[in-house]
């Protein structure tokens, strides 16, 4: 199944799409972010401040990347018809979950925060996005540490193939918390490995459809043997070559950054690249002919 990437939006500690593109095209190792926390102040470009109240950091990252993807395709003011939303994540809105636990521990169950509880439900970011866009639409959220991005891409391809939707805002989001950072250190210690790259966070959104014009075409359900003649932008190789791991940090949805980097590197060419998460592969091809 094929689909086209029409827009890319990123909200990450290193910045957005342009910063990633500069790194990919220059093939120069980027400077390391001083803090692996994404800023979302630019959300005010798209969403009035009064509508941002009560929105947590995880959702803000998702919204900013989603609006940037729409903006990248000049679709903010002219939203695509028959839109769908798919979000994948490794951990979901962790800090909001911990905020709810804080309210129980600090104030007692009687004063537990209904806002933190409801917003810790993992499909709320997709609900907030559709609400702010004013678009009732098919929406689904995926939470898993094993291949979250490829799984989400597969679902996007199916929804387009089945014509449930004509366009999909597909996003990958994760956030870091102090507890997650500490636990990651602990798990690394237990495993005997040595990891120097910090736990990170961020959001990447793609505007996907079946049109021909865009950054690149994605082919899903590709076997490794089918990629024999394709330069492999495998997660490991790309990160190693461009030192993107330093830029992106350790994040369950790193595959989405890899996919964005691959698409940006072959935009306007007739080249292809393979991207993977685990044993799941897809091919990204430039749309020079379009």
């Amino acid at each position: 199944m094929n689909m086209t990437i029409e827009g890319i939006g990123i909200a990450a500690p290193f910045g957005g799409k342009e910063e990633l593109k500069a790194t990919v095209l220059s093939k120069v190792s980027p400077s390391t972010p001083s803090l692996y926390k994404a800023t979302t102040d630019d959300l005010s470009t798209f969403v009035p401040a009064r509508k941002q109240r009560r929105i947590d950091h995880f959702t803000r990252m998702a919204l900013l990347a989603a609006y940037r993807a729409l903006d990248d395709a000049n679709k903010v003011d002219d939203l695509p018809q028959n839109l769908g939303i798919i979000i994948c994540t490794g951990y979901g809105p962790s800090q909001t979950t911990f905020d709810f636990l804080d309210s129980i521990i600090d104030d007692g169950p009687k004063l537990a925060s209904p806002l933190a509880f409801s917003h810790s439900v993992h499909n709320i970011p997709a609900g907030v996005l559709s609400l702010l866009l004013g678009t009732p639409c098919p929406q689904t959220t995926i939470c898993q540490l094993m291949n979250p991005v490829m799984t989400g891409i597969q679902t996007a391809a199916l929804w387009l193939a089945e014509k449930r939707v004509d366009t999909i805002l597909f996003g990958a989001v994760d956030e870091t918390t102090p507890l997650l950072e500490e636990n990651m250190d602990k798990l690394v210690l237990e495993s005997g490995c040595e990891v120097s790259t910090p736990v990170s966070e961020g959001a990447v959104f793609f505007l996907l459809n079946n049109q021909e014009r865009g950054y690149a075409t994605i082919e899903t359900s590709i076997s490794l043997s089918e990629l024999n003649n394709t330069p492999l932008f495998s997660h490991r190789e790309l990160l190693k070559t461009l030192n993107l791991e330093t830029l992106v940090g350790v994040i369950p949805v790193a595959g989405a950054f890899n996919l964005a980097a691959a698409a940006l590197s072959i935009e306007g060419t007739d080249r292809s690249a393979g991207c993977n998460e685990g044993n799941t592969w897809l091919r990204v091809s430039g749309n020079a002919h379009a």
Binding site: G92, H122, N123, T141, C143, Q144, L158, E162, S221
Partner: peptide
Amino acid sequence: LDGPNQTVVNACTSGTDAIGIGASWIRHGL
């Protein structure tokens, strides 16, 4: 197992969605 896998987290529609998505995997030969 080593086939396609997905954990759906759509709150109280999750079970229904998982079956609907799983059915599409069959329809499309995945």
